[in-house]
């Protein structure tokens, strides 16, 4: 019982502490936290447009969270989700722009291109880890920047003629949904939400119901034991990164094919990949946990946009809250320690 108790309470604690800290920061800087969070809630679900936009924000958060969580289960820290996402975004858009095909082929092809590009980008750190024992964190950080600069170069010099973004993708490759648009007052909510849900199911299925998933998790628990019982640790490391990268690439494809319909030059990162780390951590790296955490963080992010409009509070307050939640989840030892103190005190 106590194990599950901690599993549930420490993320909850972290969220509450994070929101409290956000309220204190608002208070100290002379804003009204009740108004602030009120405006945020209105921005999350105030009317059908906001609800649509919130759900739209959640789509890449779910996929980025799955990407980080999947690698975590094999004992790998995929900090490169950001780069894989950018690469997947561009690949999906490229296919969307370059080909002229019927929708039934074009759309799946574009989505697949995103996933494959993300996989290939994640294959590099996986392969280097397996082959040379190089730490995947450093390699994937370096690849994040490489992805950023290379995609910017490709957009400007190869795909377009010195423009700062690509052409719009063909309608046959678009995930846009007139049905959702009519339902949510023309928000950008798109069909990708179903892809995200399918991926959640895929992750759960691979990890819990297949032999491959068992091996992946075994390697995450204990590499020596896995090796000794005949599993190939190297193969599983690479496989885990490749699948993780596919989720990340899909997250990018959702942005490219659904939300924006093009790929533009970026001055910096999208941030979705890094927030994916927060999502995975808070969701305890389980498929269902990732969904819940993505709803929370996606909601916070979407609601934040409304805060400066209604109350003048800079939307960055939400980034602060998310960062603090990561801190508190990471320092769960501290929360456990407090809980234990508290229990002892009660006795």
């Amino acid at each position: 019982m106590s194990k599950y108790f901690y599993k549930l309470t420490s993320p909850l604690f972290a969220v509450i502490l994070g929101l409290l800290a956000g309220a204190i920061i608002m208070l100290v800087s002379g804003y009204n936290p009740v108004e602030g969070y009120g405006a945020m809630l209105a921005g999350i679900a105030g009317d059908s447009y906001y609800t649509g936009e919130t759900l739209r924000t959640i789509i890449p958060y779910i996929l980025a969270g799955l990407a980080v969580a999947f690698a975590f289960r094999t004992g790998l820290f995929n900090i490169g989700v950001e780069g894989q996402l950018i690469v997947g975004w561009l690949a999906a858009v490229w296919v969307g722009v370059a080909f002229d095909l019927p929708k039934i082929i074009h759309l799946p092809l574009a989505i697949l291109a995103g996933a494959v590009a993300g996989s290939l980008w994640a294959f590099i750190p996986g392969f280097l880890k397996a082959k040379f024992r190089v730490h995947e964190v450093i390699v994937s950080i370096m690849l994040n920047y490489t992805a950023l600069y290379v995609t910017n170069y490709l957009i400007q010099n190869v795909i377009s003629d010195n423009q700062d973004k690509t052409e719009r993708i063909a309608e046959t490759a678009s995930l846009r949904s007139p049905f959702f648009e009519s339902l949510t007052d023309f928000s950008r909510l798109h069909w990708g939400i179903f892809i995200a849900i399918i991926c959640v199911f895929i992750m759960w299925f691979i990890l819990e119901k297949t032999k491959t998933g068992f091996e992946l998790k075994a390697v995450g628990f204990n590499q020596q034991a896995s090796e000794y019982s005949g599993m190939s640790v190297n193969k599983n490391i690479i496989l885990s990164m490749v699948i993780s990268g596919a989720f990340a690439g899909l997250a990018g494809a959702m942005e490219g094919l659904g939300t924006f319909g093009y790929a533009a030059i970026k001055g910096g990162f999208t941030g979705i990949g890094f927030d994916g780390i927060a999502v995975a951590l808070l969701g305890a790296n389980s498929a269902i946990g990732v969904v819940l955490a993505a709803f929370l963080f996606g909601g916070l992010k979407a609601g934040a946009i409304n805060m400066p409009l209604q109350t003048g509070i800079p939307s960055e307050i939400v980034d602060i809250v998310i960062a603090l939640i990561i801190f508190f989840v990471a320092s769960s030892y501290f929360i456990r320690w407090i809980v234990q103190r508290f229990k002892k005190g009660a006795k």
Binding site: I25, S29, F77, I79, V137, F274, D275, I277, A278, L281, P314, E316, I317, V318, D319, I320, I322, A323, L324, I326, F327, V329, A330, S331, S332, Y333
Partner: peptide
Amino acid sequence: RADQTVSGVAINLLAVGLTLF
């Protein structure tokens, strides 16, 4: 005893959020 990489990621997010705020 937090995961040092995770804590570092949090530092990065927090710094950007806080300064822009």
